[in-house]
Amino acid sequence: MGYTLNFAAVWRSFDLLLEGLALSLALAFGAILIGAAIGLFTAFCLISKNGFARRPAGIYVTIIRNTPILVLVLFTYFALPQLGFRLGKIESFIFTLALYSGAYLAEVFRAGLLSIPVGLREAGLAIGLTEIQIRTSIIAPLMFRNVLPSLSSTIISLFKDTSLAAAIAVPELTFEARKINVETFRVIETWIVASCLYVITCSILAALMRALERRLSVPR
């Protein structure tokens, strides 16, 4: 082979990679936050007895989950402006990832909601709580605890999906790595470093989620 690894050129641009990583995290954080709200609302709709709430929620989840995220990203950024809905690159990507994560999180939350014994809702009703109070004080906190393990892998997966923002030139980690790759021609080194940054960040996220799980676990 005769190829000698030389990371010097990549190290010189390491700041760019870190800036890209920071933006990747910001994209994921913003999208997951909005997506979690969409997901929670959708999950309650999915388990609702009311067809007017349940059916549109089901259609939303089916469409989003059966469409590749890259197609959604390109559609939002390139096609929606044709329909008069124009967003900047970053906003467009956050919007798309939020919609996408909302559909996935809705399924995660729905499973969590279904695992909560119906008796707890009745106990809440029996002490005079309203449905909203039961949802906010009893069902949502318990559901959140129940879904933390699967929420953790969904969040990590969504963080990795931020690399698709490179397709619309959002300067996140993958986009910056590609730029350094083109400028330095150190293909292997650039992608090794970028991969390491993804692995390390995902590992930290997983550790944080595990710590949260431990902190919120119900004592037995």
């Binding site: 106990a123 009703l125 005079g128």
Partner: peptide, 22 residues
């Protein structure tokens, strides 16, 4: 809301306790 208020006129203990586990 009115039903919730009326429910509080009675207290209920259940077969399965139904304590909030968290």
């Amino acid at each position: 809301k009115e039903i919730a208020r009326q429910r509080a006129l009675t207290g209920m203990a259940f077969q399965q306790f139904n304590l909030f586990p968290h």
